[in-house]
Every structure is written in structure tokens, then in C-alpha cells.
Simulated scan of single mutants.
Amino acid sequence: MIKTGAPRTLGRRASEARLRFDTELQETGGGARRRLLVVDDEPAFELSFYCGTCPFLFRRLEGAREKLSLEGVQERLTGALDDPDEGGVIDAFGTLLPQGEYLPLLLSVEPRLVAPGREGDYFSGEQVITWGVDQFWGLPEYPHTPYYRTFETAVHANAHLYEFVVPMVPPTWNDRERVEEYVTLMGQGTVPTAVAISTLDVCEPAAGMPIDHYQHWGLTHFLLDGHHKLEAAATAGRPVHLLSLLALGEGLAGAEDCARLPTLRARPRSDRSDRA
């Protein structure tokens, strides 16, 4: 954690914003089917289900096929921001967002790129220990995208915070020359800044479910700007700054949980096996 700002109202009406949170309804009966992050009126990510007892989730859908960088602020983000309000970046990216309350968090992250089903994958690792595999498919949840793991720490004895940075498009779509440019800059000491819209989901399995019953606090940062920076940082083993605009009221977490994030994010990193 570098710095946190005060909650503020940002964004445009849903009909004018490029991103919004939405609920897909059943064709019959009208009940909720999927909780979604929508980009340009197309479902881009399926998010954790509303019940709060289903496994934590972000799953890339067909609508996630475009980055959301803003040319007017790219030069300011080449180097490190030292304050969330520096350079008007929050207001600039607020033009992409749906109207709502956001908590600005300026973080330092050291990303590690993870592929689903491979070493370090949360969905086939920590999540399976708590929920087991999907009862229908007999497989772990599958996010349909590589993603970055950046931080985790204990919330309390029965809860753990996991942090993820999720690209809008897979790293294989990145321009190789731009990634290498950032690798070089980072090697010279530059710490660039990425920007994300974020959610906090607190999920806990129903009573009587598998092995290790505890809450999973999933802090998910969906990248708006910084796809090349995150891949370069993961390649070079270097840090980047991440300006997170946490969408208050859009995740599966109460106001008190969201208010705890700055303190939790300032703790030392510890994985679940470190618990007493």
C-alpha cells in the first residue's frame, strides 16, 4: 500500500459508460443468472455469484477483447504515481466508469503471471481445498484467461485475502516490442503505473462443505491501462504501481469490509500455509 484516497463519486450514467456492472436474468422466472462486468454493452467477465456461498470467480467472456487505455494520460503513467490524485488520472478514467462510489487505492505490486490449471493457479489450488471441484463438471473453476497474482494475507484466523490483476485481453495479444521497452525501462529503475477498476468479493462455503472451511476475500483488479507494464514486470521480476478504483457497492462485500482493505493491504504478505 502506498496511499489511499477518500471515497468519491465518479462515472457516467450506465448508458454512457464503457463499463458497467449488470445482472443477467433467467429467460423464465426472472431470477438472477449471472453477475457480469460489461464492456461496450457486451458481457466481458462473469463474476462471483450473488449467493456468497458459491466459489469466488472471474471468468473471461467473449466481450473481453479490447484494452481501455486513454491516450491523454499515457505519458503520465509511464512513471510512478505517488498519490492517487496525481495528474488528474482518476478523473480521466472516471469517464469510462459507471456512476458510483469508488475508493482510490495506490498499490505497489510485484505481479506473477499464472495460467489456469498450472502451478500457482488459485482456482485449482486454494479454491479446491475449500470448495472442492465443481459438482457437475468434476473440475475446478476455469477463468478462461491467464491472470496475475500479486498479494495475499490473513484477514483473521478464518479468512484470507487473495489479490488478482486480470487483463482485459490475454498477454499473448500484447505487442512484444512494447513489453520489451518496459522491461528495459524497469531495468533502469523506472516504476510505471497501471490503472484498474476493482471489486471485493467475500465468499464462504455453505456449512458441511469440504476440507478447509474459511472465507476467501477476493480483491480483483480488472486492468484498464497497463497490459504491457504488468507483463513486463512479471517477466523482469520488478514492481509496478497500480491505481485501483474500488467500486463500492458492486462487490460481494459490505462497507465495513471495504473500509478494512487499506489496513489489510498494508500488512506483510503471508500465504494460507503461514497461519498458526
Rank of each mutant, 00 (worst) to 15 (best):
K3E: 07
K3Y: 13
K3G: 06
G11W: 05
R12H: 08
A17K: 00
L19W: 09
L19V: 04
R20N: 03
L25K: 15
G31E: 12
L36I: 01
E42M: 09
A44D: 13
F49S: 08
L57V: 04
F58M: 05
G63M: 04
L77D: 00
T78P: 11
D82I: 02
P84T: 08
D85F: 10
G88H: 07
V89H: 09
F93M: 07
E101D: 05
P111C: 02
P111L: 01
L113T: 02
D121E: 15
D121I: 14
F123S: 12
S124M: 09
Q135C: 11
F136T: 10
T145L: 06
Y147S: 14
Y148R: 06
R149W: 08
A154F: 12
H156A: 12
E163T: 10
F164A: 14
V165K: 01
T172N: 13
V179C: 00
V179H: 02
E181W: 12
Q188A: 15
G189Q: 15
P192A: 07
L200E: 07
V202I: 08
G208L: 06
G208C: 03
I211Y: 06
Y214P: 06
H221F: 09
L224E: 03
G226M: 02
G226L: 07
E231W: 02
G237A: 13
R238F: 05
A255S: 08
P262Q: 05
